[in-house]
Amino acid sequence: MLDNCPVRKWFYLSGAIIAEVAGTLALKGALDSPALYLVVALSYAAAFVFLSLTLRVGMPLGIAYGIWGASGVALTAVCSLVLFAEPLTPVMITGILFVMAGVILVEAGNRGDDEHRAVPDAPPNEQAPPAEHGDES
């Protein structure tokens, strides 16, 4: 049903990030129009469903949560500039660059050897080398 397809993992994680950012932006907007609280609740629920799916297809918790939380903070800052004309100061832009570098490093470090699985779902693929007949010591 759900496999460890890497594309699916990133698809779910992107969904979780977008939903979280939508929820946080709606929360800011809800100060003016309270109907948006409905969007807040739905978005955060969706974010956690997506995050849960991300973990289910095998992304480690520490990595998923780090990328999800940090990307959400960075994207929210950028979107607040566009939607609410909130300032994006040089300090904040530096922070966004740090987050981006950190996310890349964490993912690169995790990819180092790819045999880690949160769930050992398949029996190890023990392909015995073709047996040599008799004459080895």
């Binding site: 520490g62 990595i63 780090g66 939380g69 940090a70 903070v73 960075a74 800052a77 300090v91 904040m92 530096t94 922070g95 966004i96 660059l97 740090f98 987050v99 981006m100 570098a101 950190g102 996310v103 890349i104 490093l105 964490v106 993912e107 690169a108 470090g109 995790n110």
Partner: peptide, 15 residues
């Protein structure tokens, strides 16, 4: 990965 998490930490705080 530890260095990456450190950078994420600093980044979030800066933002």
């Amino acid at each position: 990965m530890l260095i990456g998490i450190g950078l994420i930490l600093i980044g979030v705080l800066l933002i």
